[in-house]
Design a protein around this nucleic acid. Structure first.
Length: 852
RNA sequence: GCCCCGGUAGCCCAAUCGGCAGAGGCAGACGACUUAAAAUCGUCCCAGUCAGGGUUCGAGUCCCUGCCGGGGCACCA
């Protein structure tokens, strides 16, 4: 039905998002506007990368956010005249896919690739501006071939090695986990199982060799990565600086080295503790009495049975076994009894410590349980600066002086103060004492400055089927033989006939035909494990540059042209694992001369989570918002716009707090403007309505900065403001034929092309232009239009606002001050007062200070 | 316990360098259009910035202390 009189409905129909989506999806599919010629060097380049998804089911609202935000950035740089590489692929190996396949009794490959197709369809519907010509899947042999190359490259440099050690074992998934995959509560980040310790021979990447660089290079990323992520990475690497000190052990030819961050307290050591599960403990107890040996054996067993959860209970009463051995304190020759206790960790430092109960809470707790001596060596009541007393006169008078008796109070003394009972250190402050003792230790050879890290080597073996086979063979003696590069890829066998159910060993080992290799008359066995999928994603950003190259992992020339990634977009859940590994692998590739940069991701944007009613969405809670249902209900553009408008990108979006309906109404309102423009494309804007033109050019000038600083919500708000002004100009001003209305509406269409691509394309077409709006240039603002005729200056007297006046923005300070003094409000306020000071900040403020 | 981020209107959020607390939206009220409603168009209402100190002519913004919320690390020597 049409209402002939209505100005907004002349045979143009209503805003119909479904029709627009169908129309423009077909256009993009046919023209592929985002497939780039990567050899074209006429334009500057940007590499915008969104974290690629796992293909476990359809896309969800979290994907909707990340791909909306990444696309804004990609589309923005295109409008700025850049050649933008914006690829997508699938992280398609891994446990989620495999477990799902097991539950459904289908081939993981079929299951994975059909999910990929579903997600691909959804992404195209979502109008993400990807270059669809360079899709990769990490589960393709064409990809994991180079994963194996990477492994062998690290192996060749001694950075991939096999080690027998206690590993994190997930009893549900029946596989080992990296330290990074064990949650703080001691459960698996995937299955939720309580992780237990198991001794296995596994492959590791030597990431600890890079600990210092991984830490120090974070400084380069300051301001470009979220500070939260930088903090998390620093925390995770956990460098501590201190000293290694050698303790001679009675009856042992070589000394035992301990690590301490408090070498200043060396004179306060009263016993030593070794980790029960360390080789050292086993060796030390070997000569002990039968009773102690038995006690120790029981203790070791108990330690290994204890769960990570229990170990983290700091309030747990300390336990331990005296080993009947003594170490000699190198600084004073004292005999220190040696104990084994589980509060000392085998794989941190050297697995042995000197215990200083007076100044370390854990040591004190232990000493109090086993009645060991406690000696204070740092007087924490003594002032360090001399000027500021720790013990005040009031405390002296009241006798309320802190007791320096940790044994009685149970509180270790952790503060600063002056050294006592410490020979050459006596009288020094803590910091000076540390410097002094380090010098002394190095002079006498009894110790040295040292650093230690929380970061451990990266365990990459997984006892699962759906991953990259580790390209290592074992000969009949069990020796490692790397697969030759010419024999890559080592392809996964078909899953048919294999039992994929978790049983503690890799299903690949049971594929005897696959795992047995005859070569030159000798029989070899393949390593049955597959690689952690974080290996796959640690270098995929390089593969996108030459995804079809079957002669090398990546094309060095393309890498030089495009990498590192200019903008990486993804969830903060990868703040440690993925990003740390990608940084590590990049540094390794740099050292080997494969790439010329040391950090893979120049800038990082983390989006928050999409939640509902204050809670994380989950099927069990029944508070899930479904991606496809939202698209059906509101349309792609409205959902994308809602993601951008909800708030700062890194904040969580509570879907209950935002209004996709509101977004939809706004888009319809913007779209209608394109039907109200009554002028021809190419019209001279110069004669248009001056007020609207000023708004438009202010908008053109401001939006780029807003996008570049990720203030997408503000950019959307500014676009809404533009629409409001333009509407008003059409309805209440010069009308739709005014040139400024066209100029404004074109600017709106360009801005909307970042957030609402279908609506923007259609507006652009209705404005009489050829598609695609996505390939236009963002117009430069005319700076002569940015200068305001007049601005409001304020006059403050004693901090209170007393007067406003309209002045020229070019006004001088003296003139403004004179004007201000003449105003009635100021005169009135100044009556009976003496002016002390006048501060003028032309053209904004005059601030007058008085005494009354 | 240590570290990071945040707290502005009923709600989501803005506010270059310290310079008039409000850009935008949601919700709400009212009006225009309509037989009516929806849609649309328009007008309006609402906080003094978590609390307390400090610096300053001037503080949402800088500094200190505390409270609340979110996140990370934690028996790491």
């Amino acid at each position: 039905m049409t209402t002939p009189e209505s100005p907004h409905s002349e045979n143009e129909g209503a805003y119909n998002f479904a029709a627009l989506e169908a129309k423009w999806a077909a256009y993009w599919e046919e023209h592929q506007p985002f497939t780039i010629d990567d050899t074209d060097s006429s334009k500057p380049r940007k590499y915008i990368l969104d974290m690629f998804p796992y293909p476990s089911g359809d896309l969800h609202m979290g994907h909707a956010e990340v791909y909306a935000l990444g696309d804004i950035v990609a589309r923005y740089w295109r409008l700025q005249g850049f050649q933008v590489l914006h690829p997508i692929g699938w992280d398609s190996f891994g446990l989620p896919a495999e477990n799902a396949a097991i539950q459904r009794g289908v081939d993981p490959k079929e299951w994975t690739y059909s999910n990929i197709e579903q997600q691909k369809t959804s992404m195209k519907r979502y109008a993400a501006s990807f270059d669809w010509s360079r899709v990769l899947h990490t589960s393709d042999p064409e990809y994991y071939h180079w994963n194996q190359w990477l492994f062998l490259t690290l192996y060749d440099k001694g950075l991939a090695y096999r080690k027998d050690s206690w590993v994190n074992w997930d009893p549900i998934d029946q596989t080992v986990l990296a330290n990074e995959q064990v949650l703080p509560d001691g459960t698996s980040d995937r299955s939720g199982a309580v992780v237990v310790k198991k001794k296995l021979t596994q492959w590791y990447f030597k990431i600890t060799d890079y600990a210092d660089r991984l830490l120090d290079d974070l400084n380069q990323l300051e301001g470009r990565w979220p500070s939260k992520v930088l903090a998390m990475q620093r925390n995770w690497i956990g460098r501590s600086e201190g000293a290694e000190v050698d303790f001679v052990i009675e009856g042992r030819p070589t000394p035992v080295t301990i690590f301490t961050t408090r070498p200043d307290t060396l004179f306060g050591a009263t016993f030593m503790v070794v980790a029960p599960d360390s080789d050292l403990a086993a060796e030390l107890v070997a000569d002990a009495s039968a009773a102690v040996k038995e006690q120790f054996a029981h203790y070791l067993e108990a330690t290994q049975r204890i769960t990570e959860i229990d170990r983290q209970d700091a309030g747990r009463t300390k336990t331990g076994v005296f080993l009947e051995r003594y170490g000699i304190n190198p600084v004073n020759g004292e005999r220190l009894p040696m104990w084994a206790s589980d509060y000392v960790l085998a794989d941190y430092g050297t697995g042995a410590i000197m215990a200083v109960p007076a100044h370390d809470q854990r040591d004190l707790d232990f000493a109090r349980v086993f009645d060991l001596p406690v000696r204070v060596v740092l007087d924490t009541n003594a002032p360090v600066t001399g000027a500021i007393p720790v013990v005040t006169d009031e405390m002296l008078e009241s006798g309320d002086i802190p007791a320096l008796d940790p044994r009685a109070t149970g509180e270790a003394l952790s503060g600063n103060g002056r050294m006592i009972n410490s020979g050459p250190l006596d009288g020094l402050s803590k910091d000076h004492a540390i410097g002094r003792i380090l010098d002394l230790l190095e002079e006498t050879g009894g110790g040295r400055r040292a650093k230690t890290y929380r970061l451990r080597d990266w365990l990459i073996s997984r006892q699962r089927f759906w991953g990259t086979p580790i390209p290592i063979l074992y000969d009949s003696s069990g020796a490692e033989v790397p697969v030759g590069l010419e024999d890559l890829p080592v392809r996964l066998p078909e899953s048919e006939g294999l039992d994929l159910k978790p049983k503690g060993t890799s299903p690949l080992g049971a594929a005897t035909e696959w795992s047995t290799v005859e070569k030159d008359g000798e029989t070899f066995t393949r390593d049955p494990d597959t690689m952690d999928t974080f290996v796959d994603s640690s270098w995929y950003y390089l593969r996108f540059l030459s995804p079809k190259d079957d002669s090398q992992a990546f094309d060095k020339k393309k890498v030089e042209a495009w990498a590192p990634v200019d903008q990486y977009v993804g969830g903060v859940e990868h703040a440690i694992l993925h990003l740390l590994y990608a940084r590590f692998i990049t540094k390794v590739l740099f050292d080997l001369g494969h790439v010329s940069f040391t950090e893979p991701f120049t800038s990082l944007l983390n989006q928050g989570m999409v939640i509902l009613d204050g809670a994380k969405m989950s099927k069990s809670k029944g508070n899930v918002v479904y991606f496809s249902e939202e698209l059906d209900a509101y349309g792609v553009d409205a959902v994308r716009l809602t993601m951008a408008f909800a708030g700062p990108p890194e904040d969580d979006i509570d879907w209950a707090d935002v209004s996709p309906v509101g977004s939809q109404k706004f888009l319809a309102r913007a779209w209608r403007l394109s039907g109200d423009v009554d002028s021809s494309p190419g019209i001279e804007f110069g004669n248009g309505d001056a007020a609207l033109r000023r708004h438009t050019h202010r908008f053109l000038a401001d939006v780029p900065g807003l996008i570049e600083s990720f203030k997408f919500n503000v950019a959307v708000a500014r676009t809404m403001e533009m629409v409001n002004h333009t509407r008003k100009t059409v309805d209440q001003g010069p009308g739709g034929s005014d040139a400024a209305v066209r100029e404004a509406t074109e600017a709106i269409a360009l801005a909307l092309s970042l957030f609402a691509p279908h609506t923007a394309e259609d507006m652009w077409e209705r404005l009489g232009h050829e598609p695609s709006v996505a390939l236009q240039r963002w117009p430069d603002a005319d700076h002569t239009l940015l200068v305001e005729d007049s601005v409001t200056a304020i006059v403050q007297i004693d901090g209170k606002l007393r007067e406003r006046l309209e002045v020229s923005p070019m006004i001088g300070g003296d003139e403004l001050k004179a004007l201000a003094m003449e105003t009635p409000g100021v005169k009135r306020s100044l009556e009976g007062k003496t002016i002390v000071k006048v501060i003028v900040r032309a053209p904004k403020v005059v601030s007058i200070q008085t005494t009354s």
